[in-house]
């Protein structure tokens, strides 16, 4: 009841909007064989890093820290993964190195986000400006490091991760291609979404995170150190953004530091996804999937001979965000977000 009531109101709204958008799309999709398994899998591949970053971000925000630096941490995560792969295996690293690269990305972003967390919590830095700074630093230093390592801004082709194929089961219709011939990282994303939901709503630490963002004094008087909870959540969010960047890289197989880099706004979409999913991990993951689908739809339309500028189609998530924020007004932002907390003693 409790969790359900926590989100049910929003779920109905999200569900309604989802249906309004999806039903005609699906109808058209089936009619024109727009939705193929390939399309679904490509959408999942786009969605998984967004979902991972989004869940990291929502943990931080639930605890009262607005981590607007997700995009920056994702850039560092992707860059670290590329550098690690290249360092270990040159331009054609083996599959094992990809996993090592994922771990390395998490470690590096843990360190970076720990520094970030100290600035925010101990030194009460402005969360929005500091978060933007992380993005600027990522945009600035990623090309620097790329140039130092590869002599140009792009890593060139590295390896991307292979699908896990379960022979036999992969032949099962519908479920087979989604679960038994799939990138292990996407499968892990499914697990991650479920676990992070469970952790947030069914463990004491989840309660503490929620209380830290809603009424830190209540948590403090319950004897829990608010800032410790916030440190944990903020570092987790940075690490998850780093992991998201690494997952993105493991699917793409190369890093490019020009312009907005390979990450290209996906960290921002992560923030948008959890707002859209109303701070619920599952909602955020579904929103990420919606964005993934939108991202892929222009490609899919082209294969059907419909030429829509991908440039315009790629704007759709951004437009949706503006519309959603407008229609629903305030999201249920935790009430103490952005407030540095000082215990009174």
């Amino acid at each position: 009841m409790s969790v359900a009531s926590y989100t049910s109101q929003r779920r109905v709204q999200i569900g309604t909007l989802g249906l309004v958008v999806l039903i005609p799309l699906i109808a058209v999709g089936i009619e024109t064989s727009l939705f193929t398994y390939g399309f679904l899998n490509r959408s999942l591949a786009v969605a998984s890093p967004i979902a991972i970053a989004a869940i990291g971000g929502l943990y931080a925000e639930k605890s009262g820290v607005f981590n607007i630096g997700l995009e920056g941490f994702m850039i560092f995560g992707a860059l670290t993964a590329a550098v690690t792969m290249f360092g270990l295996g040159g331009s054609s690293p083996g599959q094992g190195y990809i996993w090592i690269a994922l771990v390395a990305s998490v470690l590096v972003t843990v360190i970076l986000s720990a520094i970030f967390a100290v600035l925010l919590i101990r030194y009460k830095a402005d969360q929005i400006v500091a978060g933007l700074a992380v993005w600027f630093i990522g945009l600035g230093f990623a090309p620097v490091i790329a140039t130092l390592i590869w002599g140009r801004r792009s890593s060139g082709g590295l390896s991307s991760i292979n699908n896990v194929v379960v022979p036999g089961l992969a032949e099962i219709p519908v479920i087979g291609p989604i679960f038994f011939d799939q990138s292990p990282l996407i499968l892990l994303t499914f697990v991650f979404v479920a676990v992070s939901w469970l952790f947030l709503y069914r463990t004491q630490y989840g309660y503490w995170i929620q209380a830290a963002g809603e009424n830190p004094e209540a948590l403090d008087t319950a004897g829990i150190d608010v800032n410790r909870v916030r440190y944990a959540a903020t570092i987790f969010s940075g690490a998850m953004a780093g992991l998201a960047g690494a997952v993105l890289l493991a699917h793409l197989g190369s890093f490019n530091a020009s312009g907005d880099t390979t990450v290209d706004g996906r960290g921002w979409l992560g923030i948008v996804a959890y707002l859209f999913g109303n701070y619920n991990p599952i909602g955020a993951a579904l929103a990420a999937l919606l964005f993934g689908g939108l991202d892929m739809i222009s490609v899919q339309l082209q294969t059907l001979g419909i030429n829509l500028s991908s440039r315009i189609v790629n704007l759709v998530p951004y437009v949706i965000v503006v519309v959603v924020l407008t229609v629903w007004g305030k999201t249920q932002m935790p009430s103490s977000v952005g407030d540095p907390y000082e215990s009174e003693d």
């Binding site: 009841m1 409790s2 009531s5 503490w208 929620q210 209380a211 809603e214 948590l219 319950a222 004897g223």
Partner: peptide, 13 residues
Amino acid sequence: VEPMTVLQNIILG
């Protein structure tokens, strides 16, 4: 904590 339930508030911590 306003959005949490009575039970969750009582046992918090």
